[in-house]
């Protein structure tokens, strides 16, 4: 009998190889989070002993945690990765930031727009991402290969039926696909695999005493780039992050989990699913699905 993790691993490797063989210009979206770390390890395994035959792309909003950027650069250096970092500089020059633009517009410009620009600029026809079907209701139906039209848009009605592991990898000029090799992994699978394989992850996942402020019921990391608002006073608390994104929009949770085992213990006992920590999802019902249609993951 083979363990489900080995089965999932084999399935993901199969997807990587198939897409790398069939597409002209694949790229892997690298978000620095735990899912990306697993994705990276699987890509290494898929092409070992050769190098990963495509570049990694990080969309840097410039508002990411410092520790994320340090981690990214260190890993890229250690593994000799071909890493592309893209930022929507025009939007930043125009003053784009979450407080004045609102999280939705800010995300739109710095993430979605930036991603679409970078994909178009690199003429990438396939982009690997770390999304999982268990993350959110609308993703339960996402294909492993998700088809996008020339504008990078997703239309639930034009998605192709996906049978067995026979992936239809054909696209016309200008069309592209997003590929989700972790589709069938759950959050617990990801953590178990990280532990099993000793995969390095950003220290922000581990609890530590950090300086935070409280805003709309969320604990936001105090950071030199953002001044506290009127009435907000930074204080120290033992916290960690369940998901990583931009500093002002990513909530920390109070936690004593300083080791991987402790984190996993928390995950198992979790009473809140993981995306709750992100401000963006609170905008309105079905927001994730709308973002997906627009091109955001």
């Amino acid at each position: 009998m083979m363990s489900h993790l080995r089965l999932l691993e084999a399935e993901s490797i199969h997807i990587f190889r198939e897409v790398a063989a069939e597409f002209e210009r694949p790229v892997m979206l690298y978000s620095i989070g735990k899912d990306s770390s697993v994705l990276l390890r699987l890509a290494q395994k898929a092409f070992y002993p050769g190098p990963i035959p495509f570049p990694l792309l990080h969309i840097d909003t410039s508002y990411k945690f410092h520790e994320m950027v340090e981690f990214r650069d260190r890993i890229a250096n250690e593994l000799g990765l071909n890493l592309i970092v893209h930022t929507n500089q025009a939007a930043l020059d125009g003053g784009c930031e979450p407080a004045s633009y609102g999280t939705r517009s800010c995300c739109n410009l710095l993430k979605t727009q930036a991603l679409l620009d970078a994909l178009a600029h690199g003429k990438f026809d396939a982009a690997f991402g770390g999304a999982r079907r268990d993350e959110e209701k609308s993703r339960a139906k996402e294909r492993i290969l998700s088809f996008r039209d020339i504008h990078g848009q997703w239309d639930p009605r034009t998605q192709r039926p996906e049978l067995w592991d026979l992936y239809n990898c054909r696209v016309n000029q200008g069309e592209s696909i997003r590929v989700f090799p972790l589709s069938n992994w759950t959050e617990l699978d990801v953590w178990t695999y990280i532990r099993l394989e000793s995969i390095p992850i950003v220290p922000l996942y581990f609890a530590r005493e950090r300086e935070v402020i409280e805003r709309n019921g969320m604990l936001i990391m105090h950071d030199d780039r953002f001044q506290p608002r009127a009435g907000e006073t930074p204080f120290k608390a033992m916290v960690r992050f369940r998901t990583l994104g931009c500093v002002p929009c990513t909530g920390a949770i109070r936690s004593e989990a300083t080791t991987l085992d402790a984190i996993i213990g928390e995950v198992i006992e979790a009473t809140q699913s993981e995306r709750q920590g992100r401000a963006i999802d609170h905008d309105q019902d079905s927001s994730m699905e709308r973002k997906k249609r627009e091109g955001y993951f």
């Binding site: 363990s3 993790l5 085992d261 213990g265 198992i268």
Partner: peptide, 12 residues
Amino acid sequence: VPALLAANERKD
């Protein structure tokens, strides 16, 4: 946790 994970690693 280690016991739980060991079990999780073995699940089919």
